[in-house]
Amino acid sequence: MTPTAEPPATGPSAFLPRSFRVAAVHRETAETRTLELQPVDGRPAPAFVPGQFTMVYVFGVGEVPMSITGDPARDDRLVHTVRVVGAVSRAIAGLRRGAEIGIRGPFGRGWPLTEALGRDLIIVAGGVGLAPLRPVIYHVRAHRAAFGRVSVLYGARTPDELLYRRELARWRRDGAIDLQVTVDRASAGWTGLVGVPTLRLRQLTIDPARTLALTCGPEVMMRYAVRELEHCGLDAAQVHLSMERNMQCAVGLCGHCQFGPDFLCRSGPVLRADRVLPRLAIREL
């Protein structure tokens, strides 16, 4: 039942995008949109492991890596959440229903869901870092009995910058997982939590021996999340994080995403924290 990816694409097919059509666009925040994409050829969308990414190509503009944020159990569409940070992401966010774009992938190593089976899960997400973790939440909720306690701590700068608000509200209501949403700066009308998500870790009831933690967000936040989790009794080897670097070929051949010995597009983007912590302490590595 653990999602498995298709074998890595090789040869020209790893380099040649496949055409997808925009089936729906959802406005998440002022700066982010979620796109549902369907293969133009009518065949199923590629299988993926939560945490994997694709390369999204906009005709005449360029290509960027984007984590997959849809439900791994669905093969009728590929879902991406894009935050406008540059020319390509702006073009993607501006796409309308019916537009055609190119997709390569999925690529990379995702979250360790097999290892997570039967264990307690702590998920710490910051900002758009929730996007690559949402497929994990879908999967866990669909196979709830296969996991122990599941806590999701999600933080954003302001309430307006929270992704998937309607879905979060529904998940909080039904109580299948413990979901805590917190913001750095509350605005009028916000009745939820205020503060950084990492600080909330100490309030969780944690059985370190049976817990696995997944975190994605700004690198600074992830570093502190690992430290806090260590304080809670976890070993860094029980924490997995998702890294972001420049990715161009997505198959470990162009060299851009090197982080010490790792090609993050290949041995990442999800890495075990104990492997990367010493490197995260080196500036400009």
């Binding site: 380099f15 005709f59 005449g60 503009v61 290509e63 161009q248 070929c249 162009c254 060299g255 851009h256």
Partner: peptide
Amino acid sequence: CFCTATSDRGDLAGREAERWQTWD
């Protein structure tokens, strides 16, 4: 040294585009 950059070039009419891989 094997590193390469990926770049996309398009024509002015917006009809054709090319993907190039160049040494980086």
